[in-house]
Simulated scan of single mutants.
Amino acid sequence: MSNTPSVTVHYAQAILQAAERLALPLPETLRDLAREGRIPLVRQDELWEAFCVAAADPLIGLRLGNALQVGHLDMVGALLMSCETLGEALEALLEYYPIVGEGGEFSLHEEGDALRLVYQPRYAVRREERVEAVLASLAHMTRWITGERAQPLELHFAHPARADEARYIELLGCPLQFACGENFLAFERDELNTPLIQANALMREHLRGLADDLLQRLGQQSLAAQVQQQLRQQPRWGKERIAEQLDLSGRHLNRKLAEEGTSFKLLRDQVLHQMAEQLLRDSSRLAEVAEALGFSDESAFAKAFRRWTGITPGQFRQGLGA
């Protein structure tokens, strides 16, 4: 965490634009936020409070979330759009969300045939409205970046419904549950392989480099993000070697990753899965892919790939027309 939690100015601009569109009166001192760089979280708190009071709409957070554009998420929005699949975009979100704002944390959890993207807010002001804005924006973006071919299976909110549930369904367009203790979007595992309509490998790698640099400047790079960065550079390394690079013991690394809601095995699988698909797209021989990623042979790699995707490397290539 940085000493002064902050939010990208682009997210604040989304609120100010919504207020202008709805003709909501906001203090002039808050309108000036659009001229700043990153905005301290305490100032963002003031903006949210004024915005919600002026709107007098219990579902203003949902409405704002539905209206958010890719540009309001800083470079993270463009990075998510440039990923190959929905699953890769969710993993990138886990790594780079602090660039958008430091008011909460995301984590991914497997649950049978579904995957839960959990959001844990740290807001003290207008928590419910802000959580609804975050989850609504992700549901909206999921549909947009996949060309309407994928959407969340279900949304869960930790808080009770703030208005009639029919209004939520009208705005979100998917099943909902309230007062469930956690805020999350559930996705069918098969939908994670949905290709994105603006996938661009060169753009993605360029934006990753910029995002890594910005995270380091913010002092906001999570341990999970650092582990993934190390694994992308050295995919053959195991837990102890990666831990050594981060000045940790393997046991301490496990414990700290668990606190972030993940594990070394999950992070390694995510990175190797991404790298495997890219290498297969580049028409590398299976033996070369297995060697590059640290597998003992083609059979071990094929077994892992089938566990990640439900198909063989050959079937994956057939789907690409290779």
Rank of each mutant, 00 (worst) to 15 (best):
T262K: 05
I169E: 08
T194I: 11
D190L: 14
Q230C: 12
E188H: 15
Q17S: 05
L117H: 06
V70E: 13
R143M: 06
L172I: 11
S82C: 05
T85H: 05
T262H: 00
W144H: 06
Q228S: 11
V70T: 12
G261V: 07
R241S: 07
Q177S: 11
R208P: 03
Q233T: 07
L93Y: 08
R35Q: 14
H140W: 02
A243W: 01
P195D: 02
Q228P: 04
R217I: 13
E46R: 14
I197V: 15
A158H: 05
H10Y: 11
R143A: 09
R306P: 01
R127A: 02
L30V: 14
A199Q: 15
L155I: 15
W144Y: 06
Q228M: 12
Q177K: 03
R21H: 15
V289S: 05
V9M: 06
L80R: 02
G103T: 04
A224F: 03
A300T: 13
P98C: 01
F305V: 02
E277Q: 15
C180T: 14
E49L: 13
D164E: 15
T194S: 14
E148L: 06
E132D: 07
P160H: 13
N66Y: 06
G173M: 09
A243D: 02
D297H: 10
S299G: 13
R204I: 08
L79W: 05
V227R: 01
G314S: 10
Q228L: 05
Q151M: 10
H206I: 07
F178M: 11
R143Q: 11
Q229I: 01
A292M: 11
L155V: 15
S299Y: 09
L280F: 11
E240P: 03
R236V: 05
L41G: 07
M1I: 10
E46K: 14
D213M: 10
E291Q: 15
S6C: 11
R285N: 13
L47F: 13
Y123G: 05
P195F: 10
R204K: 14
A34F: 11
R317G: 07
S137V: 04
A54F: 14
E205V: 09
A179P: 02
R31M: 15
A211G: 04
A158I: 04
D212V: 06
R122P: 00
L68I: 12
L153Q: 12
G71Q: 12
E277G: 12
R307N: 11
L41F: 14
T8P: 02
Y97V: 00
T8E: 04
